[in-house]
Design a protein around this nucleic acid. Structure first.
Lengths: 335, 335
DNA sequence: GCCATATGGGAAACCGGTTTCTCAAATTGA
DNA sequence: TCAATTTGAGAAACCGGTTTCCCATATGGC
């Protein structure tokens, strides 16, 4: 008797029986494949709906050899970059019925190995690797896996697919914004020189200045990614002869430190000096006084693209390899 | 011929064939179940190892009716609370071979429904629900699911299992710390009064003061969770007659605002006034000048416990229902 | 009216494991 | 020495779907 059996899940067998067909026909009808009359198809679909049939994804995956599941591997313990990325991936993939395993592996190679193995055992269709250090690989080799891998915010192999923000464009926009404000003596206060992105951004900064015919000599200060360094940098700059009127910072925390230090010195922002940050970490940028103009890396969109690129790989479609640079946006606030 | 076939995954069938036994025996040997001679068991295990056999988790899940997978549902778009929690869950569960699907659903009920359905289709063994607002439920009803649910940082049903930090103890410790510094005029600057935790913490604050025989009248200021509010609160407090010498803040951002405002007024922290925050959001607390003394909610440990509680539920073990309050730790820095 | 083709649907194999049940051989007991 | 029990291992069913292949019937052409 076809009726809503409580507790137990409804299987395709139940549907088939209720519709008086075989499971084969039921399957074909529900998936719009094979040869089934329109009449029968509709009837089966109706019955399935009435019974509240939901196919067991595991069983389907077993035959299809597709689990509709991907893994996201990250060594960003803080979540600053991972969560927006994750949200984007998830958003991009949910339409494809794909779910995401998230694994935070820190810098522990053993843990990384365990998690990757667990993912492969669970038959993930692909893996997205990400980290906070673009130039540092994950502590595990993903190059020879049986599933495709996409790298986001992280250096992948030459013949792989890597998605990163276009730091060059972002930094260029930031500097051009400062120039448009009429700033002429522009310095760049940034993070440790061991980071690739630091050089990327510094280079773009210089280039934009040169293009505008503005001096770009000795205008980069390397330090750490902290507010503290922002303060220090202002101390250094304001002890010199020629004080800058525009400061482009390597991230929002540095910028916050810079702005605070300037205020404390009685320097008006943006009256005397304009400041631009990088990251658009709203919790920092919005609470800076005045709110910080900064570069947004559009991480959510980057995640979406990474997810979509991965499914295309999984589907065997051709995907252009190499480094994809996704545009950054300048978020103009009051600084 | 048993040999390392490249590309294709090794199945239990391959192992059985190479060891000249049936798949039934192979399965039993590898799982240490059934009746197999020690000799045969060892041989099969050795062969499996040599072939690099890794069981297909999907196939196993299908028969065992356990997917060794749980879902983590969150409406915390920012990751501030979710990621540490996630790390804890993951850490607690990896030993059990359990992986975690992470879904950020925001406040969208439709999206929530879709993700929950997707999880159920993928046969998750259980779900952990979490959010940034402890007193706001997720925009989807999880009460009548076929799998167990554990609530973390979020109000669950009466007969469910809910894990939250012990706000009362944390707030009490914070206030007692201020008292121990010799502070007598203590105020509490906290978030919006619609939040349950706000009242919880305010109450604990009052109680600790009363116990110490210190005045606790009109000493709570409700506002928002922002730095800006911290500034405003100092304005209010310092325009009054009797200025406080100890301030306990509802979160680190407020505390940061308070400390900055005090410094700008020339009030010395911790010389004239001691300040304690809540959350131990390191990025804020460590960069505050001076570094912030604050309450850590031990979210990672909370996540671990939530994960373990869930597997116990899944295993049908008895688990005490109700609200579990996990201890907070006071992190003493310089404020 | 008869043969070739198209159509709808089902039986059975399969995905990769687990588990029950059966059975032959080995061991034990009297 | 012979029956009763224990032991080791395999055949087959199963989990819940998908897919291939085959067959009966309906349709079309001449």
């Amino acid at each position: 008797m076809p009726s809503a059996v409580s507790g137990e899940r409804v299987t395709i067998y139940d549907v088939a029986q209720a519709a008086r067909v075989s499971t084969a026909t039921a399957s074909k009808a529900l998936n719009d494949t094979g040869r089934v009359s329109l009449e029968t198809r509709d009837r089966i679909k109706r019955v399935a709906r009435e019974l509240g049939f939901r196919p067991n994804s595991l069983a389907r995956s077993l035959t299809r050899k597709r689990s509709f599941t991907v893994g996201l591997l990250t060594n960003d313990t803080y979540g600053r970059f991972t969560l927006p990325l994750m949200a984007g991936i998830s958003e991009g993939l949910i339409d494809h019925g794909v779910s995401v395993f998230l694994c935070a592996i820190g810098d522990n190679p053993d843990l990384a190995r365990i998690h990757v193995d667990a993912m492969l055992d669970k038959q993930v269709d692909g893996i997205i690797a990400t980290g906070k250090r673009i130039d540092r690989p994950l502590p595990v080799d993903l190059a020879h896996l049986s599933v495709p891998v996409v790298y986001a915010l992280m250096a992948g192999p030459r013949d792989g697919i890597t998605l990163v923000p276009d730091d060059r464009q972002g930094a260029g926009d930031a500097v051009r914004h400062l120039l448009a404000q009429g700033r002429q003596r522009i310095v760049h206060v940034t993070g440790p020189s061991e980071f690739d992105v630091v050089h990327e951004r510094a280079l773009a900064c210089k280039q934009a200045l040169v293009e505008a015919g503005v001096s770009a000599e000795d205008n980069v200060l390397f330090g750490s990614w902290s507010e503290h360094w922002g303060h220090q940098a202002v101390d250094v700059l304001w002890s010199g002869a020629e004080k800058p009127d525009g400061i482009f910072c390597g991230n929002d925390q540095i910028a916050r430190g810079v702005v605070d230090a300037l205020r404390e010195r009685g320097v008006n922002v943006p009256g005397d000096v304009s400041v631009v940050g990088f990251d658009n970490w709203e919790i920092v940028a919005k609470e800076t006084r005045p709110p910080l103009t900064t570069v947004d890396m559009n991480l959510k969109e980057l995640g979406r693209q990474a997810g979509l690129a991965l499914v295309r790989l999984v589907n065997g479609e051709a995907v252009e390899t190499g480094v994809w640079k996704l545009p950054c946006s300048l978020i103009i606030r009051s600084s």
